[in-house]
Amino acid sequence: MALSFELDPATTPALRDELLDLWVDVTNAGGSVGFVPPVARDDIRPELLKHLVAMVEGRTRLLVGRDEDGTVAATAFLTHNTHRLMRHWVWLYTVMVHPRHQGKGYGRDLLAAAEDAASGLDGVEAIRLTCRGGLGLENFYASCGYKEVGRVPEAIRVAPGDDRDDITMLRPLPRLAA
């Protein structure tokens, strides 16, 4: 069954808790979303609050994918670029699919929904994201139309002696025929 996606849902305490639980579950399953397992809710809460503040300030948009039970199963944050020369693309951050839903094509569905959301933003022509090397994530993103446009070797230290590349990927948005 497919996920249902919503851009900019009402940020209720229940949604905030679901986002926090998703982030914890994804991280503890080995997902590369800014933390290294093991984590608890209190470890991630400050970072989630930064995302929520950016939403209130209008800098970030939240895309939520819900499963057939209505539970948050996937998320991504689209963040506007504030630099005057780079407003034609957005950042895609904290791309997550709950571990129990991985392998069902929901990651591709989430990226397609993010592309649809970004295409609806005035003047946006591309999506950029970064991913952690060493996990094959760049191959997944490439299969979804993203192109590697930059790599900083060993920029991410997940543990002493375990440094990973920071990979930047770009997805130009399809242009609508005039």
Rank of each mutant, 00 (worst) to 15 (best):
A29E: 03
V33A: 10
G34I: 13
G34P: 06
G34N: 08
F35S: 09
F35K: 05
V36T: 15
P37A: 15
P37R: 13
P37L: 05
P38Q: 12
V39I: 01
A40D: 10
A40Q: 15
D43W: 01
I44D: 09
R45L: 12
P46K: 15
P46W: 13
E47M: 08
L48W: 03
L48T: 01
L49Q: 14
L49P: 00
H51E: 08
H51V: 03
V53M: 05
A54I: 00
V56I: 10
E57N: 14
E57I: 02
G58P: 01
R59I: 05
R59D: 13
L62M: 07
L63W: 04
V64M: 11
D67M: 00
D69P: 02
G70P: 06
A73G: 09
A74V: 02
A74G: 00
A74C: 05
T75N: 03
T75M: 12
T75G: 00
A76C: 15
A76T: 13
F77E: 09
L78D: 08
L78V: 08
L78A: 09
T79C: 08
H80P: 01
H80Y: 10
N81S: 14
T82P: 04
L85S: 09
L85Q: 13
M86F: 12
M86H: 14
R87C: 09
W89F: 09
V90E: 08
W91M: 08
W91I: 01
L92C: 15
L92G: 06
Y93T: 09
T94Y: 04
T94P: 02
V95Q: 02
V95D: 07
